[in-house]
Amino acid sequence: MENISFRTTVLPLSDRLFRLALRITMNRAEAEDVVQDTLLRVWEQRGQWEQIDNLEAFAIATCRNRALDLAKRAGRNTKSLDEIENIQLSTFNSQLSLEAREQVSLVRRLMDDLPEMQRTIMLLRDIEGKTYQEIAETLDISETQVKVYLYRARTKIKERIKHENGL
């Protein structure tokens, strides 16, 4: 690999890894620690990068494993993100009405209540824009399994939204 530098090759993955770690640890400080460990580990292994097909997928998988380990060790119930206090709200959301924000919170809770695998796949697809193939490679499962998990996740959310809105 040519012209590798931490700044241009590894550091740009930070926010993506952070969103993933945050959805698993449900804690902003811990998610940041997970990202830090992941980036350092990826950087320390730069001598073997040529043997890695997809560096980003490798980083995501490493980050997920670390976040899961941390959540397990802490014995934390990763059900909700309610404890997160300082999530930065975008300008877009800050312009929404109170009612809309409440509904946003409902959807957020629905998403956070999903089992970890469904939640992670939904994040990688809907937030990070990954293809089914990329997700399958990252999580080391088949594309069919990816679609099955995603289908279950979306269906649950759709049904809950319908139920909440009396549809």
Partner: peptide, 13 residues
């Protein structure tokens, strides 16, 4: 709301 929420998550950094 689902898509708004996803935009929100995408903005976390």
């Amino acid at each position: 709301q689902l898509f708004i929420e996803e935009d929100e998550i995408a903005a976390e950094h």
